[in-house]
Design a protein around this nucleic acid. Sequence first.
RNA 1: GCGGAAAUAGCUCAGUCGGUAGAGCAUCAGUUUCCCAAACUGAAGGCCGCGGGUUCGAAUCCCGUUUUCCGCUCCA
Length: 485
Amino acid sequence: MSTPTDELFKNVISHAKEYGFVFQSSEIYDGLSAVYDYGQNGAELKNNIKTYWWKAMVQMNENIVGIDSAIFMHPKIWEASGHVAGFNDPMIDNKDSKKRYRADQLLEDKIAQYDSENKTDLAEELQIEMDKALKSDDLTRLRELIIEHNITCPISGTANWTEVRQFNLMFSTQMGAIAEEADVIYLRPETAQGIFVNYLNVQKSGRMKIPFGIAQIGKAFRNEVIARQFIIRMREFEQMEMQFFIRPGSQKEWFEHWKQTRLKWHLALGTSPAKYRFHEHTKLAHYADAAFDIEFEFPFGFKEVEGIHSRTDFDLGQHQKYSGKKLQYFDPEINQNYVPYVIETSIGLDRMFLLTLINAYEEENLSTPEKQDSRVVLRLHPCLAPVKAAIFPLTKKDGLPEKAREIMDKLKLDFNLYYEEKDAIGKRYRRQDAIGTPFCITVDHQTLEDNTVTIRYRDTMQQERVSANQLDKIIGELVSWKNVL
RNA sequence: GCGGAAAUAGCUCAGUCGGUAGAGCAUCAGUUUCCCAAACUGAAGGCCGCGGGUUCGAAUCCCGUUUUCCGCUCCA
């Protein structure tokens, strides 16, 4: 039962592997679930996406600076941020239907049911009991409540429940070589906290004035119950985040500003606006007073790529409370001290990578009445292409390879180039199409006479003859970040 | 984590009744050609996912396990 879009997604995944973009981690040892490695072309593409983001966020904005904080952080940070509580979900299974539920959600549903039946006393009582049990991590009590209130599985209709078990989404390890003396520390489940805890350092050392932003690209880790759909949800993933610190009260206006700015960033790559949409969170997280996702239409439906959240002063306020350090800003314009509000933009790098790959992938039919022909071409924006240009001698004799190498040596410092002399020229062109190389430069016999070469364009497959001396300028302009920024 | 399916060369797949593994494409070397996946010759590539069991003998049958896919579940 495969639809054409399923087929497309599968083809993109195998293409990603075949051409060195993404490999499964530890493949020769049977792989590691939901962990992936980036290959030779994937690493280039990923780096280019990072560069595009960093330039757009940090370099183009005088009031935004970038940092790189450590993955290990003080354990108290995760208490302050709410992750220790929020990432621990009490789960319960029904033995008959084999379905798993969040114990607190079953109880919440029951409370809602009581409310709708006007049994508000019961609802309130249950709410209080549940909060008490959750607060004290009393898993046995949670199970008792489920049984006492006759909660049954919506599928099987029975109350044949397992014990309530705790699932922790944060990876932990210990710091210090001796186990008994070790402190448990977590691998960060998000990069944002590394920014918040450095807020004061950056503000003071950079003499930053509100409004200003701190950006960061880095790895984060979540021990997902189940992680699937290729690199959409991974246990180890990379985020590109920017926290923008503002005066309380101005969050609406800045929220709108970043919503639009971030969408523009996506669209500048030439992606069809119809593939994107905003999705508003109606149920807000505890820290937010507004939240929008930028979603992209993947073959399996719209999925979040980036989140823009108005986080209020929650995070800095929490860290102020837990650390006992004042995290305030003196605003000379209004002559006041305050804990800044925060607008967050947070984009999943791996999802952006997949989006880029899927969006660029095309199986193009080139058949003519005489001949059947097709090619796979990645129509990547030239700025993002892993290889900027390939250099081919038309044949491997008559001094053409030497001439081609000479041209390559002049350009390879400025651009990531690929040299190849094997196989027929057409085959070499198609191989470059498959990894998204935007230009192919061919050295032929005429080159030896007048120092001109042909440039063959990936998208149109057209060729044009230019002087070899102008190549740096021509390629430089075509792959320049000025085209997107 | 639960249920179902699958795993054989880099890829796509064949492999009969249980009898020591095969094709096409891709790769590599060479010849030829010289601007869009050409041809020819040759080579390399496999603990049949892994572990155990049944058997004289297992890619094939049984059990376990790992990974992947589909569904459920989960997902600030």
